[in-house]
Amino acid sequence: MASETSDLAQSVVSKCVGPDGGAIGMPQLCVEWFGNQIFWLAITLVIIFFVLSRIALPRIAAILAERQGTITNDIAAAEDLKARAVEAEEAYQKALVDARADAQAIITETKAEIKSDLDAAMAKADAQISARAAEGEKAIAEIRVNALESVTAVAKDTAKEIVSAMGGKADAKTVTAAVTARMKG
């Protein structure tokens, strides 16, 4: 074995390597290098296979599954929040409608109240006005009666005085009748 190695080393390093260190023919077809390559390839593939199947692939699968889970959860949470937002909006709209109705009711009520107050005040004022008007009329009538009486009295007095001044003797009854007749005319 040892002599074989030294023999090879003595003549040429290999059948595939020329004396100048270059390749003889295609290095791919050099059979004496096959074993070495296949040996190291086998080791490499076994290492890669175990690294992948034991560590890398399960880990990546776990990461992807976890991410999928996170995404699903997040979407569910987002949908939940969206539903709540819709609910809140509905509640808000309902409150708005309610408030509008309330406001309408209050407006109607207030209007009615004001109207009734107004009507009462108007009625009161009307009553007062008519009372005052009646009072006024009464006063005017009184004044008219008084004035008529005064005029009659004055006219009688004046007529008596004129008659007596003119030397006549007027009896009161005649004068009064005359004046009364005159005043009627």
């Binding site: 190695t5 090879l8 080393a9 390093v13 290999s14 595939c16 390597v17 270059g22 390749a23 295609m26 290095p27 791919q28 050099c30 004496e32 290098w33 074993g35 070495n36 390559q37 040996f39 190291w40 390839l41």
Partner: peptide
């Protein structure tokens, strides 16, 4: 020498390439 790049060479020393030799492969 476009094919010299494909040569299998021992990483340490100049010996022949055996089955278990540590090479550029």
């Amino acid at each position: 020498y476009p094919l010299d790049q494909f040569m299998v060479e021992p990483l340490f020393g100049d010996g022949p390439v055996g089955l278990f030799t540590v090479t550029n492969v």
